[in-house]
Design a binder for these strands. Structure first.
Length: 367
DNA sequence: AAGACGTGGTT
DNA sequence: TAACCAAGTCT
């Protein structure tokens, strides 16, 4: 081995060249997405906003059909503002994180009533609107208005953590990541830069088995150079999920209607419809105690098996009881009759039923 | 500031 | 299977 031994090329810090390489890649690999306008064409802030809200913690694949349906039903922010919350929740059903739908509706109304039906252009003004946090405000400012903003989502966190070989774990590293990302934003194409970073994170710089050999900024990547790209970003361990248990009561009338109940507006599945059920506790209620929470007194029969559902922060097991009642039965409701409504089995698709409740219904009424 | 807040797909 | 993940926000 001579004195001129194979020495690693000194790695230049990420900078303007990194940005240029990324944008070249973006221009050639451009991904078509329903909410993305063709190159050079101005983006519609409404569509950018709608897509960004739907994409929060949600995969592109899951979002696409919902995005299309929302756009068909409500092509602009005034139309959405004129809809009822229930209509919005119904179309959102199955997408999860229902506060997004509530805030989407609230935000549409705020845009119409406080901003003359036009989205504000600045990050700061966007940030004040319901459902728009630091990421979404920056994303809309950059993508819809080409403002020099720096959105930082999970993709960009990962790309930056790897590019700069950051060893500080998330979420503590967030502010440093934002600062580093902002140094790379080109003043002429902030929107394209943001989308390029996200595309890179989604398709190349993936959480597991990143395709470093195909990466346009691999020559600048300190994580790659140190052989630690895949292990970044470091994250603090998450607390494990507790279990909760409850009973659901599926009442079916002889003429084919199911009893549903509206959940309270705030909290888990807020504002959505449900199959009436007991509280969800950290242990099983006795059947006798559970029966006190049935919507009315009748012969409830246990349905074999258990419905299980996993939320972000707990697992749920529901035992289901079923009853068939005459269509003209006089029922004495035990609780909140005004929140209850009989719905034709055939019309359930027009209800704001979260996935969990669709599972419960399918479990109790097979076919 | 840490936990609440959905769902479906991968590994 | 369990763990982890996906274009975060709100309180």
């Amino acid at each position: 081995m001579g004195a001129v031994a194979r020495k690693q090329l000194p790695l230049r810090p990420a900078g303007p060249d990194t940005t240029a390489a990324l944008l070249d890649w973006y221009d050639s690999e451009r991904r078509e997405l329903p909410w993305r306008s063709p190159p050079g064409r101005k983006a519609d802030p409404y569509r950018v906003w709608l897509s960004e809200i739907m994409l929060q913690q949600t995969t592109v694949k899951a979002v696409i059909p919902y995005y299309r349906e929302f756009l068909r039903a409500w092509p602009n922010v005034r139309a959405l503002a004129a809809a009822s919350l229930d209509e919005v929740l119904t179309k959102w059903a199955g997408l999860g994180y229902y506060s997004r739908a509530r805030n989407l509706h609230k935000c549409a109304i705020a845009i119409v009533e406080e901003h003359g039906g036009r989205f504000p252009r600045s990050e700061a003004a966007l940030r004040k609107l319901p459902g728009i946090g630091p990421y979404t405000a920056a994303a809309i400012a950059a993508i819809a208005f080409n403002e020099e903003a720096t959105p930082v989502d999970g993709n960009i966190e990962r790309v930056i953590a790897r590019l700069f070989a950051l060893r500080l774990p998330l979420p503590a590293a967030k502010s440093e990541i934002k600062r580093l990302a902002s140094t790379l934003v080109p003043s002429d194409r902030p929107g394209d830069f943001a989308q390029a970073m996200m595309d890179l994170g989604a398709t190349v710089c993936t959480p597991k088995r990143p395709s470093c050999l195909m990466c346009p900024i691999q020559p600048d990547c300190h994580g790659y150079a140190k052989g630690m790209a895949e292990s970044l970003p470091l994250k603090l361990a998450k607390p494990d999920r507790p279990s909760r248990f409850g009973y659901a009561f599926l009442a079916l009338s002889e003429d084919g209607h199911i009893l549903l109940r509206r959940r309270q507006e705030a909290g888990l599945l807020g504002g959505m419809m449900e199959v009436p059920s007991t509280e969800w506790r950290d242990d099983w209620l006795s059947v006798e105690d559970a029966m006190r929470s049935a919507p009315f007194k009748t012969d409830w029969w246990p349905v074999t098996g258990t419905v299980t559902h996993t939320f972000t922060h707990f697992r749920l097991q529901l035992n289901v009881y079923r009853a068939i009642v005459p269509a003209d039965a006089t029922l004495t409701f035990w609780s909140e009759p005004n929140r209850c409504r009989w719905v034709n089995r055939r019309d359930l698709h027009n209800e704001a039923l979260p996935s969990l409740m669709r599972k419960v219904i399918a479990h109790a009424l097979p076919q």
